[in-house]
Write a protein that binds this DNA or RNA. Structure first.
Lengths: 229, 229
DNA sequence: TAATTTGCGTTGCATTTGCAACATTTTGAG
DNA sequence: CTCAAAATGTTGCAAATGCAACGCAAATTA
């Protein structure tokens, strides 16, 4: 397991655990590492499984398929992030999604029961591991709540206004630098890309905001804030 | 603490822990119980706090306020459910919401750090408690993911179709009984109530579905499923 | 039973938005 | 620098939907 320590140490799952302890912990968890080829499936929709996956190298896609075989991409997970944590922690009997390797990848699979059961033995950092796991799930929870806050708003303008208000980095100059390009921004807000462009243009036209690429500034805070309600 | 055992034992947080152990556990957790009057605030937006709240009796509302003082209701939490679990577990520095008593209520506050740190002492059921907590957060996570799945779809018809497919209880007769009235259903899907009524009528008109109150049946599964993609 | 409230359906209208097709700007490779 | 590709903006149009106002029926209360 020692050779995997450099690969996993950046994962939030093992945050705050030093290398020596980590090596010990990986053994204690009985973590398995597998190489997967591009396009091969790690999990299929409808499967039952009890592992948390950690991408050591490469990328996997979370995919939803319908009966007709249409597939839609839910998310891409790259190293050093984990997947399946909500599913196994929630005790759901079947996976609502499939996981497919987006490229040749290296995956570590960790048995969930071992992860959550503090071992009686010398594994002192197990408690920290559990806290990390809980934190990861809770943070995703906060993230999803925020996303729903945008998606529920009826107009594109309201969504944009709310997003910008939440992402102000410079509170004096009211500037927001957003980590998404236009297409991703539109997708995140659940609107059509061209409709987003149109709305941004109108807002600029009306003197509410100014922007270039992913750098936005709020010119008329009162009006923008009124849209947030 | 003994007198609170009957009140907390139905909480998912203490699932699988018997009464005697529970009494022990509550002491170990140093849980505090407070009575709150209707409309009083338990937490204010922007506060930092490190407790998980458990509603023993009554009801609390999760509220978001903007700068102008407009308030919007996010959720209502009744006994024996918990609140604040994602917030504290995620390590967020400030609460994005306020919690206000919707009626005279009894609230138990549990220190998060005590909750997640397995004590060295005889508290054998602490591990179970942590698993329960993780499960609650993960289940909310699954719930939020599902909700986003509906909200992201562009048309009301797609939202309805997806919701119904996911809520089929009778797989032979393709019936779904939904736990929401029309107004709640519309709100959940993020659409206008009258627009939902209109769409349901059209779908009935076109022979796709049949419904009365909250009992729905899918008449044309192929067409409905095509909307789900 | 009568009166009132609540839940749900209907409809007209203005607005918003998805969609598609095309224009323009930016980026990066050679 | 040049050129191609990628990212972003623009626009016309049809469809969808929010909104408001109203009607009806079921449920609740007096």
């Amino acid at each position: 397991m020692k050779k995997f320590v450099p690969l996993v140490k950046n994962s939030a799952l093992f945050d705050g655990i030093n290398d020596d302890d980590l090596e010990h912990l990986l053994a204690c968890l009985n973590a398995k590492v597998t190489e997967v080829k591009k396009n091969s499936f790690i999990w299929m929709q409808g499967d039952s499984h009890y592992n948390v996956g950690l991408v050591l190298h490469g990328k996997v896609n979370i995919i939803k398929e319908d009966i007709m075989g249409n597939r839609s991409l839910i998310a891409g997970i790259e190293a050093p992030h984990i997947f399946g944590e909500s599913l196994v922690s929630s005790g759901a009997p079947q996976s609502p999604v499939s996981v497919q390797a987006a490229m040749d990848s290296t995956i570590m699979l960790i048995d969930f029961l071992r992860l959550v059961k503090t071992c009686n033995s010398a594994c002192a950092f197990h408690s920290r591991l559990i806290q990390n796991m809980m934190k990861i799930i809770a943070q995703k929870n906060m993230y999803l709540n925020e996303k729903i806050d945008y998606l529920k708003r009826t107009t594109t303008r309201q969504k944009v206004a709310t997003y910008l208000i939440n992402h102000i980095s410079d509170k004096i100059a009211l500037k927001a630098i957003i980590p998404l390009n236009r297409e991703e921004f539109a997708d995140y807000l659940g609107v059509n890309r061209s409709a987003l462009s149109r709305e941004l243009s109108s807002m600029k036209e009306e003197g509410l905001i100014e922007y270039k690429k992913n750098k936005f500034s709020i010119l008329d805070y009162a009006s923008i804030n009124e849209l947030v309600f």
